[in-house]
Write a protein that binds this DNA or RNA. Structure first.
Length: 403
DNA sequence: GTCAATTCACATGAAAGAGACCACGGTCTAGTG
DNA sequence: CTAGACCGTGGTCTCTTTCATGTGAATTGACGA
């Protein structure tokens, strides 16, 4: 019965008229043919990187801009073009792209070098070797033949925040150890003041050139959405004003194009699932809520138990009383939660860090305030919309085996 | 009333430990000819 | 004799704990008007 039902469901799904023609165009990994409103940046980058075609080392380059301003896209686009030309003309250029935020791949010095060495065809064990040994192996394999290597380090600020700036110092000096190969670095950062905290030596050698990506404004986002939706949706599947609304939402949040695209995609999926003939305005509102809920739920489920317990404690206090709550309170309740589920309670120091991390994820709002004579603490409040609360509480209780 | 000192309740930093994971080289063991 | 099992050492990485230091304004109390 249920099984049979599922078969017909799938069949119906296949028969159903779809709104999309090519959904890929709305995904963040998609690289379009042209990138609107980024001509300046592309030209700047191309000018700088062009030196590599004469087998001279291009200047190190630093790219700034907030999330969703097209940094990664432009970087990939220009480096791909360089690669194309170099292949045509037989110029030995290599481009490596690494996202430093990806856990377990490139978020420490060891892993970064190991990953690079692997891409050059030298297998490196995930752990067990001394870091300088890995450096040596990397340089060995890199220096085999004469070529230019362009190294794109995305979200480089994350890497430095975690491991310090020594790694960049090593990188800027790596050319001294190389006889044949020349390596130049493109650093991409979301953090506009990132270089201010760097060692001055690193700073000067790393950001020989800088390219800034300003946020898109609402009109520019509209252009992008129009361009992509032409590919992604079938003709006439978008209601009048849908694109305008999407871009307005995204422009409100510092012009994040990625967000706008996601919003449009999810809205399309919702409309499709509901059997609507067009993507309507209300679907966008639903999409926004769904994205937010999924985001939080995803974080909540994947976090370790200690995080879940802390969040559960915060959630409970918030439900019981209105107004702001403080670290001390949370810690007391947290200890109670731990004893209920038989979890070894952490020290307050650690819980304090966990609260800070929850704040970073945007699940809670935590602001350090001073209550004068009554000490200094964090003022905590939930930043989850009330409509999503029960689901998240359920997910937590499930994760923690609470009844 | 004014002003500096005090005080609270944590925040924030640094360092170090525990435990998981892993590579490498040396030693032991069992199977083979 | 040799391949594979096993062990010890030394390495990374993440999560924690321990110890130390920092912090901002309400409160306090001395002081002078």
């Amino acid at each position: 019965m249920v099984q049979g039902g599922i078969t017909t469901l799938f069949e119906a799904f296949l028969k159903k008229e779809t709104l999309f023609s090519d959904k890929k165009a709305l995904q963040s990994s998609y690289t379009p043919e042209t990138i609107p409103h980024r001509d300046n940046q592309i030209k700047q980058m191309a000018d700088i990187l062009a030196t590599s075609l004469r087998l001279e080392k291009p200047s190190n380059l630093f790219i700034y801009g907030k999330t969703g301003t097209g940094k990664t896209l432009v970087a990939k686009y220009t480096t791909n073009k360089i690669l194309e030309i170099s292949k045509q003309k037989n110029i030995p250029i290599d481009v490596f792209y690494l996202n430093c935020k990806l856990k377990k791949i490139a978020d420490t010095e060891y892993r970064l070098i190991a990953q690079l060495a692997r891409e050059l065809g030298r297998p490196i064990p995930p752990t067990g070797l001394p870091t300088d040994e890995v450096y040596r192996l990397f340089i060995d394999v890199l220096d085999k033949e004469k070529k230019i290597v362009i190294l794109v380090l995305d979200e480089i600020d994350q890497l430095v925040k975690k491991t310090g700036d020594e790694i960049l110092y090593n990188f800027t000096r790596i050319n001294e150890d190389l006889k044949n190969t020349q390596i130049s670095i493109i650093g991409i950062s979301n953090d506009l003041v990132f270089t201010d905290n760097l060692d001055p030596r690193v700073k000067s050698s790393l950001s020989e050139e800088e390219v800034v990506f300003p946020p898109y404004n609402a009109l520019q986002i509209q252009d992008i959405l129009k361009q992509r939706s032409k590919i992604a949706f079938k003709e006439g599947m978008l209601e009048e004003g849908v694109i305008e609304k999407c871009s307005a939402y995204a422009a409100r949040e510092h012009g994040d194009a990625r967000r706008a695209l996601e919003l449009l995609r999810v809205a399309g999926e919702i409309a499709e699932r509901k059997g609507a003939s067009k993507v309507k305005m209300k679907h966008i509102d639903e999409a926004e809520e769904k994205i937010e809920k999924d985001r939080i739920l995803d974080i909540v489920i994947t976090q370790p138990k200690q995080f879940q317990s802390t969040l559960y404690a915060i959630l409970n206090i918030c439900l019981k009383k209105n107004g702001t709550i403080f670290t001390g309170e949370v810690y007391e309740v947290y200890k109670g939660v731990c004893s209920r589920i038989g979890l070894h309670p952490l020290t307050q120091r650690r819980v304090s860090d966990i609260i800070a991390e929850l704040d970073m994820h945007g699940i809670i709002n935590a602001k350090v305030i001073s209550k004068g004579r009554y000490g200094r603490t964090r003022e905590i409040s939930l930043s989850i919309p009330n409509s999503n609360l029960p689901k998240i509480k359920n997910a937590l209780e499930e994760g923690l085996d609470l009844s």
